[in-house]
Design a protein around this nucleic acid. Structure first.
Lengths: 238, 238
DNA sequence: GTTAATAGTGTACTTATAACAATAAGGAAA
DNA sequence: TTTCCTTATTGTTATAAGTACACTATTAAC
């Protein structure tokens, strides 16, 4: 009986979203594939350490990756199928990377948001880190494609409950149409421009600035910024 | 380096909700406490087995507990703090129960819903299983009190996205005021009777029956039932 | 037939959503 | 400087959902 209980390894995987022009992107890292000469993209992640909880582990992974110390982070689901490391490549890669035979590995998946233009301190331990548009994701190891798929569903329902994540993905100053394109990318549908303006006019935590775009070859758009104080006031009243 | 990675045990814990009169209840089991002569209530749970994923494990736990084979089940969060088994009682209980030294244990928490009047096949391996109103929860081991707290928040947001769970908690036939009291219990606030009637009139998957209450010493209330076919049609159109 | 208890119902106001098209501003090209 | 291209900005009407609010109906018990 005792031996039928599972002692296993637990990892963290992070789906880090960034927004650029009209597209959501995800931060991927490259790993060497043990059996071929090539490389392969995967989600950034790590086994969890003895003395940290999953949140701390996720922060550590992202800090190692980007140098960013604090970020919005949300645990969204654990992936536990015994078959998730059935691929031989993945088994070998785990052994090569962690110098341990790992027969069962569950992962706790996190969502995170970063302004895509933010410069990373290149402290990364990975050879290559890059943004990948969600429409062009490669085949990834383990169940990472499935994890991303569920992360997308999760971010949609999250933004409804807590629109603050929109502003984590935009630069400090942004135009109404950038905000709209982000909203559209997240919900994967188009929104009427006039109705969208009405909607954001109702957000009293969205401050219109005097400043406008410069050197654009069309009518310059007004900039807005997010007012965290107003936002918090409003949230409490809900 | 290798040894700082965590090999650990993974468990499932289930927060099973039932609804009775005006209150949400949770299914608790009793465990012997190793150091005292008493017993203690806790959430039903189990270590995960080698060949099952977390969902299967949660189904197994509830099946062992109630005899019920299929039920609505939702993974909602993993609890991973290294401190969650810092209590000596809990450490000893784990060792006594699983005959293994368990230094680190994370748990994947599930939400589930059962009609409270459903008769259980008493196949339970526990000495005592009982419903406990959420307003009267005892102090529980590990972080089970915290898990229940977060389960309550989760069920609130779940019911918004998928009102079907209301009907998992009610008998097949129910009155409008039972539905309203359930809604109130979940949201922990009161709703105006007239407005609530208007709301449920808009649910085209809620069928009013001809049948009414009998032998009640006040005006008899009409029964309603839930129409799953209409509900699914409607969900697709969303 | 009076009482106690719960069921059932309508109106007015506010707020969010949705459909829909013309004008304004800035730079580039002619 | 005029024209053109591109994107920004703005209002009305209709529909749906949410909120506040109070009286009548029905049943069994006494």
């Amino acid at each position: 009986m005792e031996n039928s209980f599972l002692q296993t390894y637990v990892s963290i995987d992070c789906v880090v979203f960034g927004f650029d022009k009209s597209q959501l992107n995800i931060l991927l890292v490259q790993r060497d594939t043990p059996h071929s000469t090539g490389t392969e993209w995967k989600l950034p992640g790590s086994l969890i350490y003895q003395q940290e909880d999953a949140n701390e582990g996720a922060h550590r992974v992202l800090n190692e990756l980007t140098g960013v110390k604090t970020m919005t982070l949300r645990q969204f689901k654990s992936f536990t199928s015994p078959q998730r490391i059935s691929n031989l490549c993945d088994v070998d890669w785990l052994e090569a990377t962690y110098h341990n035979k790992i027969e069962r590995l569950i992962t706790i998946a996190y969502l995170s948001l970063i302004k895509i233009n933010r410069k990373f301190n290149s402290v990364s331990k990975y050879k290559t880190v890059d943004w990948c548009p969600i429409s062009e994701l490669p085949q990834m190891p383990f169940d990472h494609n499935q994890i991303v798929k569920e992360a997308l569903e999760e971010i949609r329902s999250w933004v409804e409950r807590d629109p603050i994540i929109l502003f984590e993905l935009l630069p400090t100053k942004f135009t109404a149409s950038e905000l709209r394109r982000l909203y559209q990318a997240i919900h994967h549908r188009e929104y009427d421009v006039r109705n969208f303006h009405k909607k954001i006019t109702r957000m009293e935590y969205l401050l219109p600035l005097e400043e406008k775009q410069e050197k654009v070859s069309h009518r310059a758009a007004r900039y807005y910024k997010f007012d965290r104080v107003m936002y918090n006031k409003r949230k409490i009243s809900l």
